[in-house]
Amino acid sequence: MNAIKKIGVVGAGQMGNGITQVAAAAGFSVIMMDVSEKALEKGLQTIKNSTDKLTQKNLLSALDRETLLSQIKTTTKMDDLKDVDVVIEAATENIELKLKIFIELDKIVKPEAYLFSNTSSISITKIAAVTSRPERVAGMHFMNPVPLMKLVEAIRGIQTHEETFQLLRQLTEKMGKVFVPSQKDMPGFIVNRILMPMINEAVYTLHEGIADVESIDAAMKLGTNQPMGPLTLADFIGLDTCLAIMNVLYHGLGDSKYRPCPLLVKYVEAGWLGKKSGKGFYNYQK
């Protein structure tokens, strides 16, 4: 673990910039990479805003904030990750994209480096298989928002070495997170195997006219003591991400109970992706 000094993060979206922030806060030098300069600028600004709020609440000193920000560099070039010790991939939940990224990373990043994926549902075994170092590949699934949520769900592919998994545990704990291992590399792992069918069922409840959006969320908040209703949560996660995970569950497990609700499919087709697009089950453009 002492050999881990520099971390690369692929993707500057809500997960990528959050991972970058917590890695830098843990004292690592971080290179946040994204193909879009605009995404990098937005991601870096999100980190600045997030750390500024922590400073205002006296949870982070001004000096520590300055140090944290100085630990972060950004780039649009994958080649700039060649010397990092660990890469955490946090791209869109799309299997073709992730496989392409891991093929590229494997060619560029030094052979002794570890390659981790923040995938929330896709097979780690399949991702590892496209690299020449499958024993150094594992799943490191953070929760959103990363700076606030304590859980990291850890997934080993069938090729993942025990040494890799123990390093992942140490890295997770160094970042101030709680390491929870998934014993099998199965679609959805732990959290999304349970969470996404609940969200999908909430969408079916809306689709079938059983209750409106507000009533569904109120019933689940007050009736099951959840801090956020399932449709609000879906909007925060991103409806495209929810649909992608449901498709992984449906096709990976072959059980009709995981079939995505047609209404969820239509919302994604309409570009109603939740908070990030301004409209989902709720309207955020007011």
Rank of each mutant, 00 (worst) to 15 (best):
V86Y: 01
D79T: 14
T172Y: 05
E269S: 12
T55M: 14
K48F: 05
T76V: 11
F179T: 03
D64S: 10
K174Q: 14
D240E: 13
L97E: 04
G223A: 09
T75E: 09
G209S: 07
G13I: 03
K48R: 15
V22E: 10
T131Q: 11
A128Y: 07
L60Q: 01
A25H: 02
A128K: 11
D240T: 13
L99S: 11
H161E: 15
V84P: 02
N283M: 07
S117Q: 05
T125K: 07
T55L: 12
P227F: 01
V146H: 03
F116G: 09
E66A: 11
G157R: 08
M32I: 00
K82Q: 15
L115A: 06
F142I: 02
L195T: 03
K150F: 03
A113R: 05
A154S: 08
G27V: 03
I95E: 12
T20M: 11
Q183S: 14
F102I: 10
T160A: 06
A90N: 09
V35A: 13
T92F: 13
P134E: 12
G254F: 07
E214K: 15
G271Y: 09
P262E: 10
M220V: 12
G278R: 03
V203S: 01
G209A: 05
L263N: 00
K6S: 14
M175E: 11
M32C: 14
T75F: 06
I122Q: 13
Q183N: 15
S121Q: 07
V203R: 00
R193P: 07
A138M: 09
K73V: 06
K126I: 09
F28H: 10
I237S: 01
F28D: 08
I101Q: 06
M196N: 04
Q71V: 02
M198C: 13
E112H: 09
D80T: 14
Q21G: 09
L105S: 04
D106P: 07
Y114R: 02
K73F: 00
L249Y: 04
A3R: 15
L151I: 04
P111I: 13
K100L: 10
L59E: 13
L195P: 06
K5A: 04
L195A: 12
N144A: 04
P111C: 12
T92D: 06
E41Y: 01
L69G: 05
M196E: 12
E153L: 03
L273P: 12
I101L: 11
T125Q: 10
T92I: 14
V180G: 03
N94F: 00
E214W: 12
G229F: 08
L54V: 06
K48Y: 10
T76E: 07
Y267P: 08
L273Q: 11
D212S: 01
Y204L: 04
T125I: 04
T224W: 04
P181G: 09
L59Y: 03
L243K: 05
G254S: 09
T20R: 02
E214M: 14
H251A: 15
R65V: 08
H141I: 01
L168G: 04
M149E: 07
F236M: 15
Q226P: 01
I95W: 02
E208I: 03
D235T: 08
V180D: 02
N2C: 00
